[in-house]
Design a protein around this nucleic acid. Structure first.
Ligand SMILES: [Mn+2]
Ligand SMILES: [Mn+2]
Ligand SMILES: [Zn+2]
Ligand SMILES: [Zn+2]
Lengths: 143, 143
DNA sequence: TTCCTTATTGCAAATTTTTGCAATAAATTA
DNA sequence: TAATTTATTGCAAAAATTTGCAATAAGGAA
């Protein structure tokens, strides 16, 4: 619950408001740390924010992503777009054949991303890249 | 139309079938080259495959992605997941604030990706990375 | 060509996600 | 604290996406 006060100043500084619904959702994301689907987030967050509705969950997640507080990710296997609290950034390797996935640290892509920042002018903080490929097993099985 | 015969052997070799629906959808993706939404693909492909339905479009796009013939991508602004024919691979830079986007060549991330292949055992062909960040304009406006 | 096998499709219904708009409540000001 | 502004929410309905299952048709065998 108090973890929401961590994010409130940042939101207010940008002219946004810290509502009970946003507190609840941030609380869920913050303490889970994992990737959660909108449905999972709805179920957990409604405990703290009883009147919570689905439209609010979807709008809030999009809002948090747009403001860099949450990261959207496609997790193969789960059909739904999942969200995760921003913070310890990392990337995902997913096998497009069997769905097996691997999480890798920033280091792997960091140098290339820094270089992209320099050449493009864009800045990527907390980037959350998903690479689709073939795992070792599936490389042998087929192609 | 004849472009589908380009993909047929690959599918048959894996035990799949080349249907009129798949031909039509591959045709659309192949000749557009651009990212298309399921709705756009449905509208265009139904011209060649009259009885085409939405469930088939969705299932086919997922099928093509899984088999490396099409690449899914989240295009900011458009809410829907878009698909593009596999081939000339590239990456996307998207501003999470204003939605402006930039397409960059493989070179940018290529070295890092090759290194990831070596360390993880995964192989990434036709990778299609979307980096979410802040464009130069939006960096000044806020943060 | 005709006959099989079964991968793939269409249909109908369920589920998920988005949208418009009036009601609500967070933050600022007096 | 009370009043004011407007960002945000809930509700109801629309739109997009997924699913189960029986009917269809692609590809191989005879
Ligand atoms: Mn992640
Ligand atoms: Mn692309
Ligand atoms: Zn695999
Ligand atoms: Zn921007």
């Amino acid at each position: 619950m108090s973890c929401a006060s961590l994010y409130a100043p940042e939101l207010r500084a940008r002219g946004f408001r810290m509502t009970s619904q946003r507190k609840a959702i941030l609380h869920v994301l913050h303490h889970s740390g994992d990737h959660l689907s909108p449905a999972e987030i709805f179920e957990r967050a409604r405990r703290e924010a009883p009147g919570l509705t689905y439209p609010t969950v979807y709008r809030t997640l999009e809002f948090l992503a747009k403001n860099g507080l949450a990261m959207p990710a496609h997790i193969v296997g789960k059909k739904q777009l999942a969200y995760q609290i921003a913070g310890e950034s990392h990337h995902h390797l997913i096998c497009r054949s069997c769905g097996s996935s691997l999480e890798v640290g920033l280091d792997a892509l960091e140098p290339a991303i820094r270089q992209l920042e320099a050449s493009s002018g864009y800045r990527f903080i907390n980037s959350h890249v998903t690479l689709l490929g073939l795992c070792p097993k599936c490389q042998k099985t087929a192609g």
